[in-house]
Simulated scan of single mutants.
Amino acid sequence: MDATAHHFGVTVTDLDRAVEFYRDVLGLEVLTRFSVGGEAFATGVGIEDARADFAHLDAGGARLELVEYTPEGEPRETPGLNQPGATHPGLSVDDLDAVYAGLPEDVETVSEPQTTESGTRIMFVRDPEGNLVELLEG
C-alpha cells in the first residue's frame, strides 16, 4: 500500500464559524463545501441517521476537512495535546511573530511563539470550537 495524505478532519459544531476562522484568520482557501447523508454514510461513520456538512480547505500539501454532523455527538471537554486521541492540524507560516501580532483579540492562544530545543518556532491557538491548531515557522 502506498498511502498518501488526502485530508485531515476536524469535527466542529458550527461549520460557518469554523470556516470563517480558518479562512479569514489563518488564510486557508475554501476549495469546496458539500453535504452528505443517507444510509451508506450513516453506516460508514457508525452514527445512526447521520448527515454532515463539510468544507475542504487548501492547507498546502493536504486538505483540512471541517465537518459538522447532524445529529451532533455528545459534548466533550476540550482535550489537551497530551491526552490519547488528541489531534491537531499543523500549519506552516513564513513569519510566526507577524501571525501572532496580527491575530484577532478573540483568538485564544496557548502561548506566544516559542523556539523548541530542535530549533523549530511554534505556537498553538484554539479555533472557535476549542480545537488546537499548531502554527510552525518555516
Rank of each mutant, 00 (worst) to 15 (best):
D2S: 14
D2R: 14
A3I: 12
A3K: 09
A3W: 08
H6A: 07
H7I: 07
H7Q: 08
D14E: 07
D14R: 05
D14L: 03
L15F: 09
A18H: 07
V19K: 08
V19D: 00
V19L: 09
F21A: 01
Y22M: 02
Y22W: 02
R23D: 12
D24Q: 07
D24R: 10
D24G: 10
L26G: 12
G27K: 03
E29R: 07
V30L: 09
L31S: 12
L31W: 07
T32R: 13
R33I: 05
S35C: 06
V36C: 08
F41N: 14
A42F: 11
T43G: 08
V45D: 07
G46V: 01
I47R: 12
D49W: 00
R51S: 11
A55V: 10
L57A: 03
A59E: 02
G61L: 09
G61H: 09
T70L: 12
P71G: 04
P71E: 05
E72H: 11
E72R: 15
G73K: 06
P75H: 11
P75Q: 10
R76C: 13
R76M: 11
T78A: 11
P79W: 11
N82K: 03
P84A: 05
P84C: 02
P84F: 06
G85E: 03
H88K: 06
L91M: 06
S92N: 04
V93I: 03
V93E: 03
L96T: 05
L96N: 04
D97N: 14
A101P: 03
G102T: 00
L103C: 11
L103D: 11
P104H: 05
E105L: 10
T109P: 01
T109K: 10
V110Y: 10
T116C: 05
T116P: 00
F124R: 13
F124L: 13
F124C: 09
R126W: 01
D127T: 01
D127H: 01
P128K: 12
L132N: 03
L136D: 00
E137C: 01
